[in-house]
């Protein structure tokens, strides 16, 4: 029955949450129509008939049996709902054996991913389908959230603590991850993806050193590669290419322009400036943009940085 009721649920667990949702909706719907129905029915039926004279109204002040029943019945109903909700939740909290572990650290405003084998990534988690995966969540600065709507689960990410969450993705696909605990200016841009691959593709991807198809192959042009990295590394969560400015300065037209810095100096945005601003953003801070950007020294290899810089140069 799990999957019959699932609305695009991405796992069996999510299907069970949906079933619970439907059950509460049915019970709620019943009481909704009962109470609203009576409310409206009484309001219409017992409206005053004559403009100047009240209907005869009986002096009813209560009915012990009725009142007892409508304390008892809701009590039973809520205990049933509680029990069901608790059971589904408990099963959801106990990780299945042999789960792949993925460490996720949130910071303003990105998710840093670390796989057990040492691979790292930003804002993109890749896992094989059909195998449980356990997320070990933490935060580097303030509270963040880790919400997988398709799996019907979320967990807060708390600095100084590790919280956990596990899912068993059934089907390959790309699933949205949202930050759900308000974390400042870039909160609504703090997005990430859980990419579930078929086991076969996943194997291939791992063998390729974490690259897909011809991505990152020898023949991928530097600019194409730079664009891909730019969007995967979360840069666009804070920097717009064009349009309304986000948290940091816009990227279009940056290369070659004169950038005013904190402290009155200014600098021409050449290749070295762009590189430095990625790996060491606190070094030269643009006037009016207090530095909140994390360093990409560890998470972005020099080759990738070079590609990003090349791409930035094309944004005229």
């Amino acid at each position: 029955m799990d999957n019959v009721l699932a609305f695009g649920a991405a796992s069996g667990q999510a299907g069970r949450v949906d079933a619970l949702f439907v059950m509460i909706a049915v019970i709620g719907g019943f009481f909704f129509f009962l109470t609203q129905g009576l409310l409206i029915y009484f309001a219409v039926k017992y409206r005053r008939r004559l403009p100047d004279r009240d209907n005869e109204t009986p002096a009813i002040t209560g009915n012990p049996l009725l009142e007892f029943l409508w304390i008892l019945i809701p009590s039973i109903v809520v205990v049933v709902i509680f029990y069901y909700g608790w059971r589904v939740y408990t099963d959801q909290r106990i990780p299945a054996a042999g789960a792949t572990e993925v460490h996720v650290t949130a910071r303003q405003w990105m998710y840093e991913i670390r796989y057990p084998d040492g691979r790292t990534a930003i804002n993109e988690i890749r896992v094989p389908a059909g195998k449980p995966v356990k997320f070990l969540l933490s935060a580097a600065d303030v509270l963040h959230g880790f919400y997988l709507p398709d799996f019907r689960v979320k967990m807060d990410m708390i600095p100084g603590r590790v919280t956990t969450l596990w899912v068993q993705p059934d089907r390959p696909g790309s699933y949205q991850i949202f930050c759900t605990v308000y974390c400042g200016t870039g909160h609504s841009n703090m997005l990430a993806k859980l990419i579930v691959m078929s086991p076969h593709e996943y194997e291939e991807w791992v063998e390729h050193g974490g690259r897909e198809g011809d991505e990152g192959g020898e023949h991928e042009p530097l600019v194409v590669r730079g664009e891909r990295i730019l969007s995967n590394a979360g840069c666009l969560n804070c920097h717009a290419v064009e349009g309304k400015e986000k948290i940091g300065p816009n990227l279009r037209g940056l290369h070659g322009s004169k950038v005013p810095l904190e402290g009155g100096k200014s600098v021409t945005a050449d290749e070295e400036y762009l590189r430095e601003s990625i790996v060491d953003p606190g070094e030269k801070v643009v006037k009016g943009y207090p530095n909140v950007m994390p360093t990409y020294k560890a998470s972005m290899p020099p080759d990738d940085v070079r590609a990003v810089v090349e791409y930035l140069k094309t944004l005229k």
Partner: peptide
């Protein structure tokens, strides 16, 4: 009464643990 019933009946979705985990902060 009308609106409070709606508010009240959507409460159990948030009171039940599994659906709360889904709907919290949405």
């Amino acid at each position: 009464i009308f609106l409070f019933i709606v508010g009240g009946l959507t409460g159990p979705f948030l009171g039940a643990l599994a659906t709360n985990v889904q709907l919290h902060d949405t």
